[in-house]
Amino acid sequence: MTAAAPTHDHLYILRNLVAKDFKVRYRNMSLGILWSLVNPLVMMGVLSFVFTVLFPSLDRKHYPLFVLLGLVPYNFFSLSWMTGTGSVAANANLIKRVPFWRELLPVSVVLGNVVHYVIQIALLLVAVVWFVGFNVQWVWIPAIFALQIVFVCGLALLTSSLDVYHRDVRYVVESATIVLFWLCPVFYGVDQIQADLVWIYTLNPISAVIYLLRQICLRGLPPPATTMLKLAGVSFGTLFVGAWVYGRLKKDFADYL
């Protein structure tokens, strides 16, 4: 927005918006942030039961860890994308009253989820060290997460701006996250997919993130350069497209909210 005063401290606004989301989410709850750990653990228990007891064909070493390394990145993706999509419409009062850099809204929602993500990942990595061990390939992990965050920010920018004009978008996103749970290698591995379909999986950043994490944490193997490059390409491409669309659409947000 051209009129956003040059003196605005975007980082300070971002910090305040993230803090707001975080505090509002857990205020008046006795278990607070522990709730963000309950859901993945319950899902891990269920998936482990189904695929090691009921259908042991998918069974592999450290299956609970294997599943968590899929669930945690997937949950971050789906939750941030969904809440990010509604973030502009949900903050109509801000859009209509204060000139500030509009991009901060979806980005702050994604970064708010990153706080949870970091906590979940940290605990998960402790478990990985305990059961599998540490290896030098871990140096790649921050880069992988950073690329995933870039990708999700791009998606959130894209769909949150479209959602202002057509509120149907949030339901499309909601359905997409349900479908993608099955189409991403959350409870199965990329190695179990037919060889001629693997290229699709490596182009999907969420699949790539899960695959790379497991490769590093469970096998101690370095991330393949081609997968990293595809992940980086698709992530920054998505951010570019999302920011471009958002920039085009944000001018008229106030008219449609």
């Binding site: 005063a5 401290d9 910090r15 305040n16 918006l17 803090a19 707001k20």
Partner: peptide, 12 residues
């Protein structure tokens, strides 16, 4: 106050 002031152009 912090949230509002930042949106209105205040620095920390």
């Amino acid at each position: 106050i912090h949230l509002n002031a930042s949106l209105l152009g205040f620095r920390p």
